[in-house]
């Protein structure tokens, strides 16, 4: 059974149809890249998967580990192992990163009937995770994302992902707003988290992230549909020829 199976998914935002029948199957252990021009519906797909309010599913279904994902609340999806790395991580003044992440991890542990970590155990756990990814956990002392640079925000998302150990990670434009050094740090983190029981869907506008996070499959989205799928060479082809010829073909 595939870890994620999206069948003819249709969704609208503010009454406007954005997703017009998405089909996508992701097996555990795979990394899929979803590419496409602005406005093709990539971010909408990530929000629909995460369960954001205002993104209304009007047709189709999403099976996650064989279960209907769309029936679950956003927090239940997260506890079941879905992780969305935000394109624009949200600032939360007054909430220290540690507090935020401890709440998140303990919510998941509680959901699975495990003991919650106390503050000391949590700090130890996070330190170890951060070290294994070569990330600093200093940023966790500061309020969540407040005053962070673009690179810091994305590193923070990567650290959260490492701590929460998702089964399916959806990375929404993780490369946007990053210089090449920050991109490498984040990509190294993502690569370190690749695992046989974990799948990733990497949403990106540009090919350059895929130089570092090499996908098993590449899909091109346009106008609310996946118009072409292939292996990693498809990304290189897009880099050379752009999206235009595919869009023409889709229209």
């Amino acid at each position: 059974m595939a870890l994620l199976e999206i069948r003819d998914l249709q969704a609208e935002v503010d009454g406007k149809e954005i997703l017009k029948g998405i089909n996508l199957t992701v097996e555990a252990g795979e990394v899929h890249a979803v590419m496409g021009p602005n406005g093709s519906g990539k971010s909408t797909l990530s929000y629909v998967l995460a369960g954001r309010e205002g993104y209304e599913v009007t047709g189709g279904e999403v099976l996650y580990d064989g279960e209907n994902l769309l029936d679950l609340e956003p927090e239940e999806r997260a506890c079941e192992g879905l992780f969305l790395a935000f394109q624009y991580p949200v600032e939360i003044p007054g909430v220290a990163g540690t507090t935020f992440l401890r709440h998140a991890l303990n919510a998941k542990r509680k959901y699975h009937g495990e003991d919650e970590y106390d503050a000391m155990e949590f700090v130890k756990f996070v330190r170890a995770k951060a070290k294994s990814l070569n990330l600093s956990d200093d940023m966790l002392k500061r309020p969540v994302n407040v005053g962070f640079s673009g690179g810091e925000k994305k590193r923070n998302e990567t650290l959260q992902m490492a701590v929460l150990e998702p089964r399916l990670a959806v990375l929404d434009e993780t490369d946007s707003g990053l210089d090449i050094d920050a991109l490498k740090v984040v990509a190294d983190g993502v690569n370190a988290l690749r695992a046989p029981d974990r799948a990733m869907v990497v949403i990106t506008h540009y090919q350059r992230l895929l130089d570092y996070v090499v996908p098993d499959k590449v899909h091109v989205m346009a106008n609310g549909r996946i118009v072409k799928s292939g292996d990693k060479s498809l990304a290189l082809e897009l880099e050379e020829r752009g999206y235009a010829h595919l869009l023409d073909a889709a229209a």
Binding site: G51, R52, E73, A78, P89, V90, G94, A104, P143
Partner: peptide, 26 residues
């Protein structure tokens, strides 16, 4: 902010409580 917390697994009631607390502690 509420969605960000929920997307990390924190249920709505706990997320609201956390944000209210943060707002005042600020």
């Amino acid at each position: 902010q509420l969605f960000y917390l929920r997307a990390r697994g924190v249920d709505e009631q706990a997320a609201r409580a956390l944000l209210i607390e943060a707002f005042l502690l600020d």
